[in-house]
Each structure stands twice: as C-alpha cells, then as structure tokens.
Design a protein around this nucleic acid. Sequence first.
DNA 1: TCTGGGGTCCTAGGACCC
DNA 2: TCTGGGGTCCTAGGACCC
Length: 426
Amino acid sequence: MKAIVDCNSFYCSCERVFRPDLAHQPVIVLSNNDGCIISRSDEAKQLNVPMAGPYFKAKPLIEKYGVHTFSSNYNLYGDMSWRVMETLRMMMGKENVEVYSVDEAFIDMNHIPAESLHDVGKKIKETIELWTGIQVSVGIAPTKVLSKVANRLAKKNKKTTECVLILDTPEKINAALQKTKVDDVWGVGYKYAYKLHQWQIDTAYQLKNMDIEWARKNLGGIMGVRLIKELCSEIAIEMEDERINKKIIATTRMFGEPVNNIKYIKEAIATYTSRAAEKLRRQKSVAKTIGIFIVKKEESHTARFKHGPSISASIHLPIATSITNELIKPAVQLVDKIFEKDTFYKKAGVILSDIVNDDAVQGNLFVSETTNKNRLLMNMIDNVNFSMRDDVLKFASSGTKRNWKMRQELRSKRYTTRWDELYEVK
DNA sequence: TCTGGGGTCCTAGGACCC
DNA sequence: TCTGGGGTCCTAGGACCC
C-alpha cells in the first residue's frame, strides 16, 4: 500500500502558524507579482474565491468579506515544508518517503500490517500537526493514483474522515471512483478531461473500465496505459528514489510592469542567471546549455487567458560551468540576439540544461588560477546569500535599482529565516 | 534512370503536476 | 490597468548514418 500525505491549503496554513488570530478566518495567498490566487483556506473556498483566478477580478469579493490576503513568502513556505518532510522521514524511515512537491509526499506503507494502516495514518497527521502546526490529509490505497483519490475524498469530507481515508477493498475503491469526476483524477488535465467528457466518460469509475489499448491510442500512449492500470489497483507508477539533482533549472519571472528597454531586460536576465547558477551549485552540478526567453506583452483578450508569444534562444557552452559570471556573459549576449526594438515585454526567464555532476567535468590540467579564485568567490557569495535566504550580494550586471522587479506588497515576515523578522512573543 | 530499410540522436512541443 | 513559477515525462519528426 501507498500513502500520500498532503498539507491542507499549505501556503495559507503556513501564514496562519504565525498568525493564530486568523485560525478560522478566510485567508488567501497570491502568486508572485500578486497576479493570481494560489492558496485558499476552507473559509475562503466557501466564499467562492476562485482558485488560480486573477487577483484583481476577485478583489471586490475579497474586500467585501474581509479576506486576509498575503503575497507569497517562499522563504517561509520552504522552511515549513522542510519541517513537515523531516517529521515524515523521522516517523516512517527516510527510505520510505518520496517528497513529491513542496506540500506532498508519497510513503511506501508495505512494511505496515494492514490492520495498523489507519492508526499509522492518524498518527502521522497528529504528529505533523503537533510539531509544525500544519494540518495534513492522508490517503492510503494500493497505487499512487488511488491514494490521490483517497486523499482528495479525505480532504473533502473532513468531518467524517478526520482527514484520513483508506481504500483497501474493491468495494471501497469502486465507490470512491464513482464519486470522483475524471477531471479530478491525477494525470487527467484540462485537455484530456474535455476529450473524455465528449466520449461520455465522466467518472473515474467509467475511466477505470476502459480498455488499455484504447487508452494507449487516445490518452497519450504509455501515460494513458499507466493511468488505467493504476485505477485498476495494478502498480504502474513506482515509488521513486529521492531525486537529488534536477535535470533542468529555470528561473523565470513576470516584470512588475512591461519593459521595452533592453538594459532592464539584460539586468533581469543577469539576475535570473545568478539565481539559477546558485541553484545549480547547491546541487553540486554544472550546466552545458543555457537558454533564455522573453515574452511579449499581449493585447488580445480571449476567453481563456494566454501568454503572448515567447521568443527563445540558447547556446551550448564550450565547458560546463556553474560559475555565475561565466553564465551571465552568454546569457546577456543572447538578449541581443532576440530583443526587438520598440517592443514591450512582460516576462523573461533563464533555463539551464544538460546538467551533470560537478565532478563529472573533465579535469583540465591547466585550470587557471582565476578559475579557482572564482570558485572560492562563488562559495563565499553562496554562504552569505543562503544564510539570509536572499541575495544580499549580487553582480553589478544585475542592476541596483531593478525597476523591473515584481510587486509584492502584502508579504508577511520571514519569521524563520531572518533574525530581524523573528516572531515576537509579548 | 531506377532509389530501401533500419537505426540513432536531437529538438521542439505537448501534456501533465503542484 | 492588473492572469505565477518551476518542474517531469513522452512523442513525433527531422537529420544523419550505413
């Protein structure tokens, strides 16, 4: 059996840990740039504040009901996430925990006897809540896809399930699948849901009973096959070893306002490159390819929001590197290649790929003195910036004023990573 | 003039996730 | 007026090779 442990309204819960006065109040958290709503407390859901909807559109509703609103504070969420995952690892054994996202982890439960599954699920929930202040839901079932179904129902029926639900018999599984729309199945997105409804397949139960070969043809090949198998309690998506290293590393941002000055675009690209290089060094890797993209500001207003066209360019570096200045130079040159005069841009990004381990780089007998100096410099910068969880030290090419920087007007304090923002007990 | 079949590698793009 | 950011995997198609 497999469990998925999923934090309830994670970002909102993090904010509430340090604002106990908001315990039963409607709370929402906004994306970067205060663009859309990315986390809602139950109370906010009940007020029909839309998920992933643009903030400005929901603003009247938010103001009317006095919904407490926060800009995203990733320093805080990252740190809280680490606490939750550490708790799980301590309780269930490191080797049984697969961190799946900032607020979710799969757990291999094969070593737990069937009759204890429920107690263990409950214990997990209670311990995390006690140690971190974060509420979680636990879904347990034979496969990952089914455990997600269980988790969703646990969360939806908090009163009856107390946030822990086990699907361990065919009867329970079928009943759960009948209550679940295909749209809500893990692995069915917007496009497939639309297709499925056209074929009159509306519930997860109906999907489960579809033919495997049909799925191969119509639901993205091997992905569709796995999905059906998992719904039929056959393991097709295994537990994964903790992924240590990312295969690509990206840093991308919207600008606070559209930008048509190439100088600012270059500053932004330099800044994102520094951040991406930092992530690269943290996992002790180097990259052989660097790409950038910029997105034009777009005029048309279709029913469904779409970004404007994105223009990209990339180059293979002669030698894989993680040294910031060696990456910034080509990145900024790429801007010259794709920037069009008199055009407004609203977003830019840097993508590092072809990532390999630091020690896999071919040793060069003639590594120059400067390379070594650069490494030491990088180390020093990383240490300072990491301890502050912010870029206190940066390269001049990143600009100092940063007119293009994103808006973040409603951010809470970085309670857990800054001394001067510690929580005060009066 | 006629012009095969099988393989690999790479890239772009689509689908999905949170 | 204002719509996030960071990932994964898979597939199709082109280039190239013998």
